[in-house]
């Protein structure tokens, strides 16, 4: 069972630093071996969100709170899944409504929110910025203002934890798809985010790498929000949203959500 903590967002106050706040802790149910049992979440709330692009409605009137440790988002192509998760760290700003992460709104503090909300994109090749793996992981830490020695320590630690220390000195373009995805995850994890969003992370991976990556996601100490077409990834998740035609068509347990999606797709 999951105990859901409530995140009360004070209105009309300046956002305090995250470090000054007391965090709610989500106690996730024990899952497979290696999975986390305690995940701290900042509390994400979307209120009456509408997103338009070139006059077309991408998302319409979405109100939802995302407070569980593992949340999946599924739905057909073009339904608005990627736009929905891009709202969560301010990569996309809504035309109306608010996105609140902890005490911050993306409209006012997107850069601040990005420190807490990491993002792993579908194509890791385009997410790796620097020519060398070590420098790429260090890139985000530099943006956080960490000193060179601290960056070096953090890079080594993260690569070690993910079991990819041997990739540290490799040139980014020589990595395989699976290695690139692990490096992209390492680059995000090194920044110690509290939420990690994955946008179709397993689409470009073979079965071996998919299983490995799935294990990594399940074992994270952070809240994970995963957009995927890979329904098996969702088996142990706490909650799954089905996005259809710019709306949340279903919101519930993974099994029920997948049943709903299959039924909806067959129509």
């Amino acid at each position: 069972m999951i105990k859901y903590a409530q995140w009360n967002v004070p209105e009309g106050t300046d956002p305090p630093l995250l470090a000054d706040r007391k965090e709610p802790t989500m106690q996730a149910s024990p899952k497979a071996a290696g999975q986390t049992s305690s995940v701290t979440v900042p509390g994400i709330h979307l209120e009456k969100i509408t997103v338009l692009r070139a006059g077309k409605v991408i998302l319409e009137d979405i109100t939802v709170s995302l407070n569980e440790p593992r949340i999946g988002i599924i739905g057909p192509n073009g339904a608005g899944k990627s736009t929905l998760v891009r709202l969560l760290n301010g990569l996309v700003l809504p035309n109306s409504g608010t996105v609140q992460v902890g005490n911050f709104t993306t409209a006012r503090a997107a850069k601040r929110i990005r420190r807490d909300v990491g993002f792993v994109f579908q194509n890791p090749a385009n997410q790796i910025i620097m020519p060398l793996v070590r420098d790429d992981i260090s890139f985000g830490l530099k943006n956080l203002g960490l000193a060179a020695s601290e960056r070096l320590r953090k890079v080594d630690q993260t690569l070690e934890e993910l079991g990819i220390a041997h990739l540290a000195e490799r040139e980014s373009h020589t990595l395989s798809g699976g290695e690139q995805q692990m490096v992209a995850l390492a680059a995000v994890l090194a920044m110690d985010p509290r939420v990690i969003i994955f946008d179709e992370p397993t689409t470009m991976l073979d079965l071996r790498n998919r299983l490995r990556f799935q294990k990594e996601i399940n074992g994270l100490n952070q809240q994970a929000i995963v957009v995927t077409h890979d329904l098996e990834v969702l088996e142990d998740f706490d909650r799954v949203l089905v996005v259809t035609d710019g709306r949340i068509g279903f919101d519930g347990a993974p099994g029920d959500a997948v049943d709903f999606y299959r039924h909806w797709s067959a129509q």
Binding site: N89, L91, R114, F119, F121, Q127
Partner: peptide, 16 residues
Amino acid sequence: RIAEETAEALDARGYD
């Protein structure tokens, strides 16, 4: 397209 995705990644990774 690569440029667009990379720009998004730069934002997501806190580049100012």
